[in-house]
Write a protein that binds this DNA or RNA. Structure first.
Lengths: 218, 218, 218, 218
DNA sequence: TATGAATGAGGCTTCATTCAT
DNA sequence: GATGAATGAAGCCTCATTCAT
């Protein structure tokens, strides 16, 4: 995905592509920040991993703080897009349970993606130093996903597929039933959870969710 | 709070002062680590906040890494104790719903305590550098709580107050319904959630939980 | 002031723009060097203040050292011209005392000009790194002025308006009586000395000078 | 002078004297600053020249700015002391002219001392960045000397050895006649002026001074 | 045991200077 | 000829850690 531009737009020389340095730096930064944490990550390491000289990083981003913010924002955008794509598959027609299980499973895949864990870890870690990160990320990711989920659940309720309920609360609880167990199971992102297990968790979440939110005259 | 003991209990001997000093360093360390993060926290700052000289810290704890681990472990113990005390109030007799709501509310209070958020934030932040922290903390805190909760839910099921179910799964989902929503609501610990809201979340969690896990012939 | 020429005189051709740009860089350089000192002055800042791109500066002047020398030399020329114009007003006819006072006053005005102080400050500052600056500036400014002054004093002595004396020594002491007190009074150029005070100093210098150098049969 | 303490107070070990690091750093700092200028002087170089590690410099002085100020202040103190000692030799009894010539000569020696030129050069150079240096130095050096000189001239006038005059102005002009010529002759401190020449300048200064300020009925 | 002073290593940032357009 | 982007070198400062008392 990130390599796409690097490969395509290389107009002339292969020796020193002038092309995508900015993106390369952002990618490298996210990798290094995720690996080392903000304070421990060296700008040298980022520059090296991006294949540029250190001052180039500063030419593009000014200082380490701004580089961090931009890298976080970029990854939050990416995560939001992936989540939204999944939520979009939640339609009002079709078998409800398997659809919920599929959406739940895919949401868990997003949630347990390495980069998602890294993003969350950095967020937790650096909130003290960068309080505005919350707004940067929440404006772009988790909240928006929960809201979109609420929208779809509302339509399901209107269609009589769920019982009348507060869609925001339903979405909040559906999300909680999905992701809540993962913190322990993934050991905060240090363990790769296999898809089987994700499906199991999703199925359990959907089971509880439907027992609480299915239409009464089921 | 920590100063009180330092002043009062130093009545006996010098050995008491030793312990006090050690505890003062641990407390100061946790405060500074929570405030600044591991990498940014200076041993100078910790020593200053503890009211001792820097080499004293090294005499007691060897190096910064070990100090960090000890401080984390101490706080994890404290958190475990508080949580256990709450879970212990989940008995098999009495009105189920209000009891669950009360326990849920108290668990949320623990979960949303400043020091709990700080602990989680440090955990997330430093997992890369200290992978063993997971075991230190999980062996002492969250998992043990969920297990204890599962024990109590099992007894409730045996007593016919819940329907037959996998108690581990029930506990996992009860915990998820409680704490899952808090990440967003507390803005990762940067917002102080009022007790009203905690009670609301607890009530909603219990409602969904009971709809899924109450005995069928309700 | 520098922008005026840029806008107006660019009527003719492109060759004029070349010269304007060169002069604009020199002016900007002197301003920035005076404000920040040689080492601290950034070529970026000079280029920005001149309204050109950084490489343009290098195209014109090769490197920072040369730019510095050229800027210093240009300002030394300017200062020399102003001083010479004043000394030129020292004629052999007319009332001696008021004429000396007027010339002294005007020399002090030159000496206390902001740009003169800046030039001296830079000279003092960078002598270690640029020993040849002394020759650049002394060949263009202060020594030449003292010599011209000596010439005029010699003619005054020949005309019997001063007693026989070594004109070089007389000029040296006249200059000393004028400028010596200014270092303290102007606080090395950081205080703007009002004209009144300059006239007072000039009058005192002339008084002492004449008591020492007036013809004996006064 | 600076070596005195270093040699004497070395209580125990010769390997790593704990004695005079602070003074050694100040001395080294002044040497390096004088040689390179403030901006160009590296703290590394200062530490190396002082024979200590870089952080030791920071432990003692906090940052480069403060180190600079302290070094300047120390040298200004030293210069003041030397000048005062000379002025103190200006008594009201004895032959006036030779005494003035001797004092003038010694003042010129102070003025033309390497460290004095270095101090003045740094002062001129860094006034822009450190405006308070003026007060630090003027409160300690040149002004105080001129005032002390004025005091002595006033006593000479009272004793009838000089004619009635404003002693401040007389001191100002005496100092001007002495030091004014040196700027050109010493090429701003880059040329070592031999004592003969200093005596010549002093004699000329005294000659002019006495012609202006000797009692009228001489 | 507790401390003041010292250190070696390393990080962020800036700058003069040069390609390639 | 003028520019935007890139770089190698270097500087200030901080920190975890250790002596010597």
């Amino acid at each position: 995905m990130s390599g796409a531009g690097t490969t395509a737009a290389s107009g002339r020389s292969a020796s020193r592509g002038r092309i995508d340095k900015r993106q390369a730096i952002l990618d490298a930064a996210m990798r290094v920040f995720a690996r080392e944490g903000y304070a421990q990550a060296g700008v040298d390491a980022i520059a090296a991993e991006a294949g540029v000289a250190k001052p180039t990083v500063y030419n593009h981003f000014g200082d380490k703080e701004n580089l961090f913010r931009q890298a976080i924002a970029a990854d939050a955008d990416r995560a939001l897009a992936r989540n939204m794509e999944v939520v979009d598959q939640l339609r009002s027609e079709g078998d409800l349970r398997p659809m919920l299980e599929e959406v739940g499973f895919r949401l868990l895949q997003c949630h347990c993606d390495d980069r998602s864990w890294a993003l969350r870890r950095l967020l937790y870690a650096e909130l003290g130093r960068f309080p505005d990160l919350i707004d940067i990320v929440r404006g772009r990711a988790s909240d928006r996903v929960t809201e979109a989920l609420a929208d779809r659940l509302a339509r399901l309720a209107l269609a009589g597929r769920l019982r009348a309920c507060d869609p925001a609360e339903a979405a909040e609880q559906f999300a909680a039933l999905l992701t809540g167990p993962m913190e322990a199971r993934a050991r905060l992102g240090t363990r790769q959870v296999p898809d089987d297990e994700l499906r199991t968790v999703a199925a359990a979440a959907v089971r509880t969710f439907l027992q609480a939110f299915a239409p009464e005259a089921d």
